[in-house]
Design a binder for these strands. Structure first.
Length: 423
RNA sequence: GGAGAGAUGGCAGAGCGGUCGAAUGCGGCGGUCUCGAAAACCGUUGUCCCGGGCAACCGGGACCGGGGGUUCGAAUCCCCCUCUCUCCGCCA
């Protein structure tokens, strides 16, 4: 969430920058500024009343000690009256705060200055690209057919046992999946990330902290009896490690990595382009998270971008990096780079990573702060990125490396798979 | 699942219902001493909100796991919840 102090002091900036996301927030911003003023007035009144009550209470204590019972009783009555006023004021204040909060939560993050205006993915900006597009032999197959032909993945068994979007990986398919996870984790460790293996279920506070709640609960699987949610990404448990934490400045940037299964209901997005591994309800992902000093967070973002690029490069997959335009940027992000990998048989660019700087948007909710060199406590910046999401990488690997001899495994993975091709 | 104990500042650990935001120790920071360091000694040391000030800071409010309640007044009393520990049972 945006900081109220920022909205209060820079309402025009908020309006202008959210226009890059095609949002007209003039009305809501004005309302927020007004309600904030009202809230502060109420708070002031309440504090003053409370101060008076505190003063009287102390006095009563002194009077009792010196045996002046009559005076004490008079003051007691006075205090009781004030207490009633104070309670009703406190109720109004709480209501006012709640309403204000609801409004603030409706505002998405402000896009970074470099974010291009635009309505949708068509206006995204391709900022880099690498690798030659493979030329496939005659009769090349899409990955879902390769998966069947080489008995690597069974979508049918997944449907039988669970439902659509929950595949079984089998034999060399399972081994390749595991190899990719290990490879990604090892690469992250080499780059200085500390590994975590997080819980796959989180509580409400955590889901709120990273922004899944209050609005996006429809995208998560919920375990209602225990009020827990299956994580849509390891970002949720890992970032929430630092909820309500004040870090010392010398710990920044924090670099964490976590592998986890991810669970997404994908409500409303089920349609075309979802064949095979393109879109799943459960999938594996290795996620990198950084917590950075506000002055250094864009250095962190570049570092993460370079890390992800190196992974795709080592896997010998052609890729491009896209800077999301305002309209395509997520609610919480200030700047996002998407990585797309070319999947040859489908002739499609598949999104395999999304690297974002959230600046203080998450940390404001999380109360994730650090003590700066001057001793001041301030909000840290949070960043995360997929490094990488497995299914589409698997799809591109299978499709791009197929030949009549079978499927070739990229060299970097061979130590992990124990085989260099799937014949 | 059953029985009991507990949750206090960065950590450890006190705290008769009334000058308690909280003793004390450790740690941290600043200083004295020293060529320097250690030791010793002195001082300082939480977060959030509101108001004032360019700022250092000053004044007020809130916070002793979370939420309610009793009371003029709650860290202290009562209720609910969460978590931790010990014992028993069950279990990968």
């Amino acid at each position: 969430m945006l900081q109220i102090s920022y909205i209060r002091e820079n309402p025009q900036d908020v309006i202008r920058r959210l226009a890059v996301k095609n949002l007209d927030v003039k009305g809501i911003v004005n309302q927020i500024v007004e309600m904030d003023q009202q809230r502060r007035t109420l708070q002031k009144q309440h504090d003053e009343l409370q101060a008076e009550i505190n003063r009287i209470s102390k006095e009563i204590g002194i009077l009792f000690k010196s045996g002046q019972k009559a005076e004490a009783t008079t003051l007691k009555e006075r205090s009781s009256e004030l207490k009633a006023d104070s309670r009703s004021l406190a109720d109004t204040l709480a209501a006012s705060e709640e309403e204000l909060n609801k409004l603030i939560l409706q505002l998405p993050n402000l896009p970074h200055h470099s974010v291009p205006a635009g309505k949708n993915a068509a206006q995204n900006e391709i900022v880099a690209g690498e690798g030659d597009l493979p030329v496939l032999e005659e009769g090349a197959l899409p990955h879902w057919e390769l998966a069947q032909k080489y008995d690597l993945i069974s979508f049918e068994l997944g449907s039988k046992v669970t439902g659509a979007g929950f595949p079984f990986y089998k034999g060399k398919g399972a081994r390749l999946e595991r190899a990719l996870i290990s490879f990604f984790l090892d690469e992250a460790a080499r780059a200085g990330y500390e590994e975590f293996l997080p819980p796959l279920l989180v509580n409400e506070d955590s889901a709120f902290g990273t922004g899944q709640l209050p609005d996006k609960d429809g995208q998560m699987y919920a375990v209602n009896t225990d009020n827990l949610f299956l994580i849509p990404t390891a970002e949720v448990p890992v970032t929430n490690l630092y909820r309500d934490v004040i870090l010392t400045h010398d710990r920044l940037p924090v670099r964490n990595v976590a592998y986890s299964s991810c669970f997404r209901r994908e409500a409303g997005s089920w349609g075309k382009d979802v064949r095979g591994l393109n879109r799943l309800h459960q999938f594996n992902k290795v996620e990198i998270v950084q917590i950075a000093h506000p002055d250094k967070s864009y250095e962190s973002l570049s570092e993460m971008r370079d890390h992800v690029a190196s992974l795709v490069r080592k896997l010998e997959l052609p890729f491009r990096i896209v800077r999301l335009c305002g309209g395509d940027l997520s609610f919480t992000s200030a700047l996002t780079y998407d990585f797309e990998v070319y999947s040859a048989a489908q002739d499609k660019w598949l999104e395999v990573s999304s690297v974002s700087n959230f600046e203080t948007f998450q940390s404001c909710r999380l109360k994730l702060r650090f003590r700066d060199t001057d001793g001041k406590v301030r909000l840290a910046h949070t960043l995360n990125g997929s490094a990488l999401a497995l299914p589409r990488i698997m799809a591109a690997l299978l499709e791009n490396n197929q030949s009549h001899q079978g499927i070739r495994i990229p060299g970097v993975l061979v130590p992990y798979t124990g085989f260099n091709s799937i014949p």
